[in-house]
C-alpha cells in the first residue's frame, strides 16, 4: 500500500501525503504546516502527531531539531467545557 495515504493526524484525518505536499510547497515552520493542513489542531491538541508534523517540516527545510519546542503549547492543554474556562470553582 502507498505509505503516503497514512493518516498522521488522527483527529483531523490529515495524511502524510497532504503534509509532505504542503511542506514541500511552502518550506515552512511546523507551526505554519499545522495551520495550513489542520494537522495537530484536533481534539487531542496534537499530542499524538505533533512530533510527526515537526519531522515533516524539518525534512522539507533541512533544519536540525532545536532546544525550543517546535510547536508551542497553548492552554488549555486538555479540552475543557466552555463553562469551566475562567470559572473559579474551588
Amino acid at each position: 500500500m502507498d505509505q503516503g495515504n497514512i493518516v498522521i493526524c488522527r483527529c483531523e484525518e490529515v495524511t502524510l501525503k497532504e503534509l509532505i505536499a504542503a511542506a514541500e510547497t511552502y518550506r515552512c515552520s511546523a507551526r505554519e504546516l499545522k495551520l495550513r493542513t489542520r494537522a495537530g489542531m484536533g481534539c487531542c491538541g496534537g499530542r499524538t502527531c505533533r512530533r510527526f508534523i515537526d519531522m515533516v517540516a524539518r525534512q522539507a527545510t533541512g533544519e536540525a531539531p532545536s532546544h525550543g519546542i517546535p510547536l508551542g503549547y497553548q492552554p488549555p492543554v486538555r479540552p475543557v467545557a466552555f463553562g469551566q474556562l475562567g470559572g473559579v470553582i474551588g
Partner: peptide, 12 residues
C-alpha cells in the same frame, strides 16, 4: 511520559 506512535496504513 507519553508513547510515541509509529504511523502506518490502517493504524486507525
Amino acid at each position: 511520559a507519553a508513547e510515541t506512535a509509529l504511523p502506518l496504513p490502517g493504524w486507525t
